[in-house]
Design a protein around this nucleic acid. Structure first.
Lengths: 206, 206, 206, 206
DNA sequence: TATGAATGAGGATTCATTCAT
DNA sequence: TATGAATGAATCCTCATTCAT
């Protein structure tokens, strides 16, 4: 293994381990000793790859972003009617959540103001950029639907936000047993019904 | 001022101060020294009112809950058609958020499993109970609409969850400047359009 | 109840309660909140009777001292042969320990140098005084035995110390389950055998 | 100095420092800041060697135990008559106390139930084990004396306890100036006279 | 005199970060 | 470059003592 490969391996192992730890404990409670242990590297080694705990956190958030956006874009099929396209994208999103549950927190993990405030702006921007691209994909479909006369006239970007917020909000509640119990319905079903409901609202009636 | 009044004042001051600190820092990062400083009491005094940081946190979450539910219930007017009723409740919710922005986190603050795990179950339940009551209010209206033939047949509780998740999801994104900027639309407008969109989806067309 | 009687009652209640707490927890770990609770007085009230935790501690130690010495002196019967007298006193000591187990710690509780260093000398002396009087009672009997020709010539005070240390040492080990188990013998029996052994050593043979 | 040597040095320094502090202050009052200061390490370093204050305490207690038992066993000389052997062991014990005065508290330091309750049973047992081995050495000699017809018939283990309690009781009183003054005799002399007295009690007369 | 609310110093423990090897 | 030992600042919580009522 070349030196560069070794570095890449280490970096990935640290990212992987810290993603799990950050996910399980939250930023503050996460412990770099634990990260080092799980990554099978020495604690000091972490600092040869990431400047600080905060930077590591953002790196975790950003790491799968490109992959995710690429995959989401791959769901696009301009031959599909917009509402079917939106359903398809929604299904991808939901399935991706189920398969990568613990890597998913990245989409609502920008909560620690203090943390972000102390980070280089470009790192923050790279995380925000993922949201933006996802929203744009949705907005484009909605706009296409409006132009095709399938959907009522609307602000596509605003409407994309609505879809996005709803999907993430539902998924988020699924993370907490108490809220899951409160919902008392199968997440997949609610997710689908929700998209249907929004689409029915969007479609021109008659 | 009587002793009881003094105690009440202190309790409120501590709750007030800790709400701000918890809000700004999150549970883990919140610092009880800071709470004491802002509440103008000694650190030890906090412990005369709350057993631990965690209990204080839940107290913050629960403090306005009853008031909130009561007010939300006061928006009910059985003479209004269901969809107008839902709009009215939605407006109340949004306005309440604007006026009590920082007391609002209670609705999405059940996140720390470790924290919750260490608390008396009845305290956790009292927080969950607020959600439940709010959802029930919504579900009742939706059911009324379905029975009246205004709305399509649906699972009222599930649909209430959708409204709820949407409202909270939108509000939540408003807390982060980066996400606010990403949205790029006035929150009130998106909120209203969102409810309209859902109602349009719910209503029987034709 | 007169004011003075009330004061006396309170004082006794506080002493009683703190004795238990000091006994169960040790000086450092003892908690005056607990003392106040058990004594059914307010915490502040303790300070109207005792200047500080340390003074309270010494007061506990000294409180039964006079009673104890008086009782021990009452075991004296100059018509008994010295060795029987010593046996009788030993039995009293042992029985008193069994009946007042938790008030007994006073005899080996002068351990906290720092505590004692910070106390008025006369209080310390009053505790020491109890030991002294007890030792003197023993020494007198031993001297009587020597003068009567029953015992070998010896330094009575030194020998009294030996009896004393033995009795207290045995009793002390009984306070700790681990040491009790290690001993593996009935305390009363060891206590008696011990005194017999010492007396046999003291007695002129032949 | 190798890393392992460094670690060993540090460990010893921490043990040394904490022994002094525990000895001077007692478990509760002992302060780990003070320990760190005296050991010339950072406070956090202590926790790299010992899990908690309580574990450190037990480590202090146990540290010299093996050495001590080994040395005590080295005093054994089966060619000596039992009573001389006991005298010799007694002298060793006394001398060892004088030379290692502050490492000696281990023999009567099992006092804090609360502390012990919170410790791994095997650690507690290792401390108890030292007592047991010491007692066994004594008991063996006493049994030998009984079998040789030098001593009266007795329960060797019980008698060993008597010797042991006496020696420790005497030494213990020497730690407190007030009790030393009360005794008013040279400890060494009392110690020797004490053993003689017990041996005289044990020996078959005539 | 009795109360008990308030105080705030004190101390054990954690853990991100540094740095000598 | 990788290590992991050492660091020490940070923070929750306790509790003896004070003092206004």
């Amino acid at each position: 293994m070349t030196v560069d490969e070794k570095r890449e391996t280490n970096r990935r192992r640290i990212l992987e381990a810290s993603r799990k730890v950050f996910f399980e404990e939250g930023f503050e409670a996460a412990n770099l000793d634990e990260v080092a242990r799980r990554a099978n590297v020495a604690k000091g080694t972490i600092y040869r790859y990431f400047e600080s705990k905060a930077e590591l956190y953002v790196a975790v958030l950003a790491a799968d972003a490109d992959v995710f956006v690429t995959r989401m874009r791959e769901t696009l099929d301009q031959t599909l009617p917009p509402s079917e396209q939106i359903l398809k994208t929604g299904r991808f999103y939901f399935q991706h959540y189920f398969e990568h549950r613990r890597y998913f927190r990245i989409f609502w993990a920008l909560e620690n103001q203090r943390l972000i405030g102390g980070l280089p702006a470009d790192q923050v921007r790279s995380v925000i950029g993922v949201w933006q691209q996802c929203l744009q994909i949705l907005a484009d479909q909605i706009e296409r639907g409006s132009e095709a006369g399938d959907f009522v006239a609307c602000d596509p970007w605003e409407t994309a936000n609505i879809f996005w917020v709803m999907a993430n909000g539902l998924i988020q509640t699924d993370e907490y047993p108490e809220l899951r119990e409160l919902r008392g319905r199968d997440l997949q079903r609610v997710f689908n019904d929700n998209i249907e409901l929004l689409l029915r609202g969007l479609r021109k009636s008659g």
